[in-house]
C-alpha cells in the first residue's frame, strides 16, 4: 500500500458559474458548480480544481461565494486557480474553503510572490501552474495569458525554480495538447516530474483512459487532470480510476 495517484476533474468558472460545456446525464442546470462538484465527488474524484476565468473584480466575489458553498457540501480537496495575483487573493480563497490556490502568470511576473505566498500560507496550499509549449527537441518554454505570450523561459528550469521558491505542487499543462485529445505531452511531463521533488499534476490533452495511465506510468505524474472526458459523460471518474487500477496504478477505490 502506498500513496494513491490522483484524478482531478477541472472546471472553468466565470462569475461563480461553471462555463464551457458540462453535460452530465441528469443535471439540467449544467452551470451549477455545487451540483457538478457533488457529482464528481460522488464518482470518487480525488480532488476538484476550478479555473476562475472571471475578468471583473465584482465577478470574483461571486466565485468566492461559490467556493464557500462547495466547501460546505463537498468533502474532498478543492483548488482554485486563475487571477491569483496578491496574498489577499489567496487569503480570500482559502478562507472561503479552498485548500489550494494555483498561481500562474503572477509567478512569472514576480517569482518572489510564490516565495511570499508559501511562507505565509504554507507550501501545501501553493500550486504553481505552468503552461508549457514545445519549441525544440526536448525543449519547452512557458507561456502566459492562456498560451498567447511566449516568455523565453525554459519550462523544466522554471519548475525547479518554483519548487525552490516554495511551490507545493506543479500543475503542468501542455499548450500543444490542450483540447487536442491526443494524450499528455509525456516528454515535458516526465522531464519536470523527474526534475522536481514536489508532486506534478499532468494536464492537457486527455482523450481516453489510457492517456491517464500513460501520464502516470510514462510521464511520472503524481496526479492527472482532465476536463472534457468527464464533462460530456464519456467516462465517469470511477471508470477512469478502475481503469488506472487495472493497469497496476495505486488508486483510491473505496
Amino acid at each position: 500500500m502506498a500513496l494513491a495517484k490522483r484524478i482531478i476533474p477541472c472546471l472553468d468558472v466565470d462569475k461563480g458559474r461553471v462555463v464551457k460545456g458540462v453535460n452530465f446525464v441528469g443535471i439540467r442546470d449544467a452551470g451549477d458548480p455545487v451540483e457538478i462538484a457533488k457529482r464528481y465527488n460522488d464518482q470518487g474524484a480525488d480532488e476538484i480544481t476550478f479555473l476562475d476565468i472571471t475578468a471583473s473584480h465584482e465577478g470574483r466575489e461571486t466565485t468566492v461565494h461559490m467556493v464557500e458553498a462547495i466547501a460546505e457540501q463537498v468533502f474532498i480537496p478543492l483548488t482554485v486557480g486563475g487571477g491569483i495575483r496578491e496574498l489577499e487573493d489567496i487569503r480570500r480563497m482559502l478562507n472561503a474553503g479552498a485548500d489550494k490556490v494555483s498561481i500562474n502568470s503572477a509567478a512569472v511576473y514576480n517569482p518572489d510572490f510564490v516565495k511570499a505566498a508559501s511562507d505565509k500560507f504554507g507550501a501545501q496550499c501553493i500550486v504553481v501552474a505552468i503552461d508549457a509549449k514545445q519549441v525544440g527537441d526536448n525543449h519547452w518554454e512557458i507561456f502566459t495569458h492562456g498560451g498567447r505570450k511566449l516568455t523565453g523561459i525554459n519550462a523544466v528550469e522554471w519548475a525547479v525554480k518554483m519548487a525552490q521558491f516554495g511551490a507545493g505542487e506543479i500543475l503542468l499543462t501542455s499548450m500543444d495538447r490542450d483540447g487536442v485529445k491526443s494524450g499528455f505531452d509525456l516528454g515535458v511531463t516526465r522531464a519536470i516530474a523527474d526534475a522536481v521533488n514536489i508532486p506534478v499534476i499532468a494536464s492537457g490533452g486527455v482523450g481516453n483512459l489510457d492517456h491517464l495511465v500513460d501520464g502516470v506510468k510514462l510521464g511520472h505524474a503524481d496526479a492527472v487532470l482532465a476536463a472534457s472526458i468527464f464533462h460530456f459523460g464519456e467516462y465517469t471518474v470511477q471508470q477512469a480510476k478502475q481503469h488506472m487500477a487495472a493497469a497496476g496504478i495505486e488508486m483510491r477505490l473505496d
Partner: peptide, 10 residues
Amino acid sequence: SLKVPHMGWN
C-alpha cells in the same frame, strides 16, 4: 524518491 509534501490519499 518520494515527493514532499506528502500529498494525497494514503
